[in-house]
Amino acid sequence: MSIEERNEEIKEMVCDILEIEEDEITETSLFKEDHDADSLRAIEILASLERNFKAKIPQDELVRMVNLKGIYEVVDQYVEA
Rank of each mutant, 00 (worst) to 15 (best):
C15V: 15
E9D: 09
E80N: 10
E50I: 03
I71E: 11
R6A: 01
E12N: 10
F31D: 02
E8K: 11
E80C: 02
D23W: 12
S2E: 01
I10H: 04
E22A: 09
R51Q: 11
C15I: 15
Y72M: 01
K32V: 15
S39G: 08
P58G: 02
H35Q: 11
E21N: 15
D23T: 01
E80H: 12
E50A: 02
V74D: 00
S39Q: 04
I71T: 04
I57R: 08
I20W: 13
N52F: 06
R6H: 03
D36P: 04
L30A: 13
S48C: 04
E22R: 14
E21W: 05
D34K: 01
L18Y: 06
E19V: 13
E5V: 03
D76R: 01
M65L: 07
K56V: 06
A37G: 05
D16L: 13
I20M: 01
Q77Y: 11
A47M: 08
Y72F: 02
V75L: 06
K69E: 04
G70H: 03
A42V: 09
L62P: 03
E27N: 15
M13C: 14
Q59G: 08
I43H: 09
I43K: 07
S29D: 05
T26V: 15
E19H: 14
E73V: 03
T28N: 08
R41H: 12
K54L: 04
I10R: 08
D38S: 12
M65D: 09
A81T: 12
E8Y: 12
Y72T: 02
A42D: 06
E80W: 03
E61V: 01
E12T: 13
Q77G: 09
K11F: 10
V74E: 00
E12A: 13
I71D: 15
D36G: 10
D34I: 00
I17N: 13
S39A: 07
S39V: 04
K56L: 07
V66S: 11
I71C: 03
E73Y: 08
D60F: 11
L49A: 07
I17S: 14
K11Q: 10
L18D: 13
I20T: 10
